[in-house]
């Protein structure tokens, strides 16, 4: 397998606080790569530096061999990198179906062509299939803002897959989700993974969730990588135990 995403020496400080202090890792094509760490360990800041929401102070990011350091979110999306945000980010006034169509319509034809295209840009079929897969078919016509938290969360994740992204970043997909359905969420992600063939990078707090889902896990603490390996290796690492339990 080859590295789809390579991150080298990535760093970002806020004033005197080094939120991310030189992180290296590579994500193999086709794997599910987990990122865990205590609150404030720099996981989300690292995501935002890779995904163009923040400018890194130092370091390089390569995607499929091409340099993407500091690229804008739009450019990354066009390259086939999807993402979700830590907080819910759906288009509240659009229906659930329209949320999914919106997530893929810009990949169909040209900007000018879309003015004259069919209202659904030919995406209704794909949207319906994904809605069914997400168990959201019964609320397809409801405004996304009126759905339950769990439904919005699923929709939010679905949107990251709608355009056929090769690499999908998920920022805490299980956060705030009813503990009883966290297992369902993991199963859903595995199914989406199997169907889309996309590579995942997942930030998560919920240990069981990460350990059950990911092929490899990176552990961060205080802006640095302290461990990287299979879930079993990481779980046994004394440094990880210290970061989580000591302190």
């Amino acid at each position: 397998m080859t590295a789809l995403l390579e991150v080298a020496g990535l760093a970002r400080a806020f004033g005197a606080v080094r939120a991310v202090g030189g992180v290296d890792f590579a994500v193999e094509d086709g794997e599910v790569f987990g990122v865990i760490g205590p609150n404030g360990s720099g996981k989300t800041t690292m995501f935002n530096c890779i995904l163009g929401q923040l400018r890194p102070d130092a370091g390089r990011v390569r995607f499929g061999g091409a340099e993407i350091t500091g690229a804008r979110p739009l450019a990354l999306a066009r390259l086939g990198i999807g993402r979700t945000f830590q907080s819910l980010q759906v288009f509240g006034s659009l229906s659930a179906r329209d949320n999914l169509i919106a997530a893929a319509q810009e990949y169909v034809g040209t900007l000018a062509g879309r003015l004259l295209a069919a209202p659904d840009a030919g995406l209704t079929g794909r949207a319906e299939a994904l809605l069914a897969r997400l168990n959201l078919a019964h609320v397809a016509d409801k405004p996304a803002g009126s759905l339950s938290y769990g439904q919005q969360k699923l929709l939010d994740i679905g949107m990251a897959f709608m355009s056929g992204a090769r690499l999908v970043f998920l920022d805490e997909p299980a956060a705030g989700v009813n503990p009883r359905i966290v297992g369902e969420m993991a199963a859903m992600l595995r199914a989406l993974k199997a169907e889309s063939g996309a590579t995942f990078v997942v930030i998560e707090h919920n240990m069981d969730f990460v350990m059950g889902l990911c092929d490899r896990v990176m552990v961060m603490a205080e802006g640095k990588r302290i461990a990287l390996g299979t879930p079993a290796e990481v779980r046994a690492d004394p440094q990880v135990l210290e970061a989580y339990l000591g302190g």
């Binding site: 979110p73 739009l74 759906v90 919106a102 879309r114 209202p119």
Partner: peptide, 26 residues
């Protein structure tokens, strides 16, 4: 009711999310 109308609504509801989905907010 064309895709443009949907893109406008995305722009209004959540421009940052829109950009991450390839919608050319600019």
């Amino acid at each position: 009711r064309s895709p443009w109308g949907r893109a406008f609504a995305c722009l209004r509801d959540n421009p940052i999310r829109a950009e991450s989905l390839g919608i050319d907010v600019r």
